[in-house]
């Protein structure tokens, strides 16, 4: 798989406080904010039909629960390895959305990291960051 450039955010999964209180274990059943995990828009055929990355002109390889991706923050070069634990983000809802660090940009939301994974490469207050997703470190 060629590395994919896009945007990442972080999300609730597993039991947690506040608006995350109703978040469950995700599509894979084992998602937790404390684990290095992520949601992937092509976690299954059913998932892809919901997230519909093709609507944004993106073709993502279908990968199932537990598959490991390496996500690099293009703002600082930091990388985190995390495994698929949920279906998401809903890429089609954010077609064309773009996040930049100077002249380095990522377009379209292609991954949601857990709080622990995201905070390993960026401040949680960053919200959205441009990233590269690869299958090798």
């Amino acid at each position: 798989m060629t590395a994919v450039i896009g945007e990442a955010s972080w999300f609730c999964c597993g039991s947690a406080w506040g608006p995350c209180g109703s978040a469950g274990g995700g599509a894979c059943g084992n998602c937790s904010s404390s684990k290095h995990q992520h949601a992937w828009p092509a976690a299954s055929a059913a998932c892809t039909s919901i997230t519909d990355p093709a609507a944004c002109g993106i073709s993502l390889t279908q990968r199932g629960c537990g598959f490991v991706h390496y996500v690099t923050n293009l703002c600082n070069g930091k990388e985190v390895g995390s495994s698929i634990a949920d279906c998401g983000p809903n890429t089609h809802q954010f077609c064309g959305e773009r996040t930049c660090c100077g002249s380095t940009c990522g377009t379209n939301r292609i991954v949601d990291l857990t709080a622990s994974a995201f905070s390993a490469i960026a401040s949680l207050s960053s919200g959205l960051i441009p990233i590269k997703v690869d299958v090798v470190a």
Binding site: S34, K35, H36, N76
Partner: peptide
Amino acid sequence: PEAAFGAVGPQVAPGTPDPSFAEG
């Protein structure tokens, strides 16, 4: 905070809890 994320921490196996992280 930006500097903190450049700090060297223990390697965390994908899919496992991060000992350098806590919530509650």
